[in-house]
């Protein structure tokens, strides 16, 4: 069997801002997958992305992209990376044509025909100033740019936030099409877990600058569950199984981290499948 190649790899990466610390972050994104990078606002998602892109310097740890260290090599490695930010970043007076002129003189693999084809596919006018674009169009423009230099890795920071469900759905379709190629990989940072549940293969969950959960999305969903029981039964549940719990006048429910064991130990309990959002909330609340 072929060995799985990691496109992104972080080992004990630390960045200390004083009031916020990214603490010994380690995770890997295997080639050909969509990795959902989730966490609440302020958890450290953009900081991690900036570290991967070598936009900011780290205090400790190792980061590799395509198997190569980003140190002193990041610019060349970025040739194969398409980046989409939560805000457009292009000047408002620029048109698609202007962006094409700029990018074809920057990227070695810039494909002019593919860029204009992408603009047509995304219904973006090439002669209109991008300042007049809606938020959805601005995000699509960034994706069009990211897809036009034959990038193998897309790194996206909250690309679907603030978009209506129709555009979000359209964008997820674009991401799905991108990962059809087996060497294409996506790191998708978002706090909209519903989108990730639909598209992600892997999940990395960051909270307060620390990775609290990482692995295959389906395995994570299968492993976790919501155990519902009477208030008085809750203390009888093994603490090692409970991530977080909530007691209301109707009863109690707990997010558990080993559904199979819980089902064996407490055959009478109702255990439902947990959604990614519930898992995220559970871990955030459990840590508080």
């Amino acid at each position: 069997m072929d060995e799985v190649r990691n496109v992104i790899e972080l080992k004990d990466v630390t960045k200390d801002y004083g009031d916020f610390k990214l603490d010994r972050v380690s995770f890997a994104v295997p080639e050909g997958t969509v990795c959902g990078f989730i966490g609440q606002n302020g958890a450290g998602k953009p900081t991690t992305i900036n570290l991967i892109l070598d936009v900011i310097s780290r205090d400790a740890g190792e980061i590799t992209l395509f198997g190569q260290s980003v140190d002193r090599n990041s610019a060349a490695l970025r040739e194969d990376v398409g980046v989409v930010f939560d805000e457009m970043g292009f000047h408002e007076f620029m048109t698609g044509r202007d962006i094409n002129i700029m990018m074809k003189n920057i990227y070695r693999n810039w494909d002019e025909a593919a860029f204009f084809e992408n603009l047509r596919t995304f219904s973006l006018p090439s002669k209109k100033k991008c300042g007049a674009f809606s938020r959805g169009m601005r995000m699509k423009l960034q994706i069009a740019v990211a897809l036009s230099h034959h990038a193998k890795l897309l790194i996206m920071d909250e690309p679907t936030s603030g978009l209506d469900p129709i555009v979000r759905n359209e964008m997820i379709g674009i991401f799905r099409e991108f990962v059809m190629e087996e060497d294409h990989t996506i790191l998708l940072s978002s706090h909209i877990t519903g989108d990730l549940e639909r598209i992600a293969d892997e999940v990395v969950f960051i909270n307060g600058g620390r990775i609290v959960l990482t692995g295959n999305k389906d395995e994570i969903l299968e492993k976790h569950g919501i155990l519902k029981c009477k208030k008085e039964d809750l203390p009888g549940i093994s603490e090692s199984l409970i991530v977080s719990s909530e007691v209301s006048s109707f009863g109690a429910q707990a997010l558990i981290n080993d559904r199979a064991s819980a089902e064996k130990l407490y055959p009478g309990a109702v255990i439902e499948q947990a959604a990614l959002e519930e898992i995220m909330i559970g871990y955030v609340n459990g840590k508080r």
Partner: peptide
């Protein structure tokens, strides 16, 4: 104004 520094730092330059 455009926040172009984000874009420029993601370019292979």
């Amino acid at each position: 104004k455009a926040g172009f520094y984000k874009v420029s730092s993601s370019l292979p330059v």
